[in-house]
Amino acid sequence: MRTTVEPVSWLHTSVGRKIIMAATGVFLMTFLVVHLAGNLLLLRADGGAAFNAYAEFMSTNPFIRVLEVFLFAGFVIHIYQGIYFISREKKSRPKGYALNNAGANSSIFSRTMRLSAIVVLVFLIVHLRHFFVEHRLLGSPYTMYDLCKAAFENPWYSLFYVVSMVLLGFHLAHGFYSSFQTLGLILNRRIEAVIKWAGAAFALGVPLGFAIIPLYFLVKTF
């Protein structure tokens, strides 16, 4: 076999990009867990004291601030690669099938990653605007708890939030398993079964955990 220098860096091949996608995906999933843990403090009936303290900590702790840079980078890279893949989709099959019964060979979650990604992205932008920008950049006079409470008591916002979480669940339902597969961590059938089970639990549990909060606030208003 000839040993040639690859014309492109390995991170720019389809497999390299996929690995980046998976690595950032795993990182973002760990973030989701942390975020959810914090958010659940909203459910404590202490008028938001615990949650506000947590929010304060998150926005001032230097270590967290450094991590935040990584987190943003993770999002940006994950989204960038996603857009790249979407832009490529048409190129590898310029003429599509007249009839494609993809439901027979793949899960709906795996085939709707683009849709779920777009919804989650829109959610992310709205979400950041509403909380991060409001609180951190515009220096809103309200506490984080108050911001949340006001938002969640708006049924439209809550509905948007819940729908987004359903789509996040879709995204995770495939993304969780897919990341591990892409990182080559599924070594055998047993691990595959565990990952698939854990993926289902994660995709169900995390979005549900998030969605409970607006529902909780909404129910309380009645």
């Binding site: 389809s14 497999v15 099959r93 795996s110 495939h174 892409t182």
Partner: peptide
């Protein structure tokens, strides 16, 4: 194209 692990 790239692989997105759909398993099809």
């Amino acid at each position: 194209g790239h692989c997105s692990n759909t398993g099809a």
